[in-house]
Design a binder for these strands. Sequence first.
DNA 1: ATCTTTTCTTAATCTACATTAAGTGCTTTT
DNA 2: AAAAGCACTTAATGTAGATTAAGAAAAGAT
Lengths: 191, 191
Amino acid sequence: MVLILENIAKHVSLTAEEQALFLSKLETNTYKAKTILLNAGEVCKHSYFVNSGILRSFNINDNIVEHVLSFACEGWWMSDMYSYFSQKPGQLFIEVLEEAEVVSLSKENQEQLYREIPKLERFFRILIENSLVANQQRLMDNLSLPAEERFEKFCAKYGTLVHKVPQKQIASFIGVTPEFFSKMKARLLKK
Amino acid sequence: MVLILENIAKHVSLTAEEQALFLSKLETNTYKAKTILLNAGEVCKHSYFVNSGILRSFNINDNIVEHVLSFACEGWWMSDMYSYFSQKPGQLFIEVLEEAEVVSLSKENQEQLYREIPKLERFFRILIENSLVANQQRLMDNLSLPAEERFEKFCAKYGTLVHKVPQKQIASFIGVTPEFFSKMKARLLKK
DNA sequence: ATCTTTTCTTAATCTACATTAAGTGCTTTT
DNA sequence: AAAAGCACTTAATGTAGATTAAGAAAAGAT
């Protein structure tokens, strides 16, 4: 449980009581690989913080094609933000890729925490600000860079994941087919 | 100045004094079309709220290709979020597309407001949450939809802009060349 | 260990979109 | 009002990446 507190301490400082109150609202679980934490069509009731292991979020287009939106490993948050914020059914699946210890924060508890510890409002604001900036950068990269450079950026940012998640999911994340990704990888290895 | 208060009232309610304090931190200016509010390489010191007119943000790749990241019209906020949040030099330009009345909030004043009116922390958190959700959706659309459908979504969301901004900028926003956009448009008109 | 399923690779063919280039009609400038 | 500069169009050609298909390799299941 220390990881999540360290995480918070980077942006706001909580007293010992506040820390205890915060922790009391959390639930920790361990899930095996392939566990589905959220199905498309459901309301996302929790935000997940990853203590260990790997999660991913994706949607399925016309019941056929999977598109990976994001990965989360140690120290990252994960949710279907649209569904979580609005409490309406979303389009994302959240799946455990590698056995994971996950801290869950329910939407109700989060709202309560905002009231009881206003500093947390700041913490989550900053978290979301950083998310938004990263997301905008990724969007610009997708508009302006060829697949090869998008892959390089992926490696720089998610280096630890490259050999842990199926390569077809990395392909999906950067926006190419597995076949093209394979060819591209072979090309890169020759250099 | 009413528009920005209405905007806030949608998410949090301020007392008359709080409203006055908030307004005292703002500055309103009118800018002619083609005014550059922010250059790439500069630190983004203000967040802009559009009372009227149109702004856009874009970057320039290798000194050649422009990529439009976003448009802002009446009631929207605009900034280089990376640069504004981090107060480091950014890569975005912000330009006035159509003569605009713009409310400026400086980073320092925003931080002061967070301290003096904690409710505003909530307001801006919600604003950024919504931004993030929209951005994620746009990213997914770019990964999974062909240009034609991306254009349809653009029209649904920014209907008022379609005939007001140069079509090459819409092309850039959805991620195609002006030439291809022109051809695509001709194809759509035949239906 | 064997069978099954999934992942990865390779290769041929195809297509959405980019590039280059030339021409037309706008605005804006002088 | 001419000149200059943009924005838009059209068309020929080029290419990054998709699709289809089939086999090899790895991972899971029994």
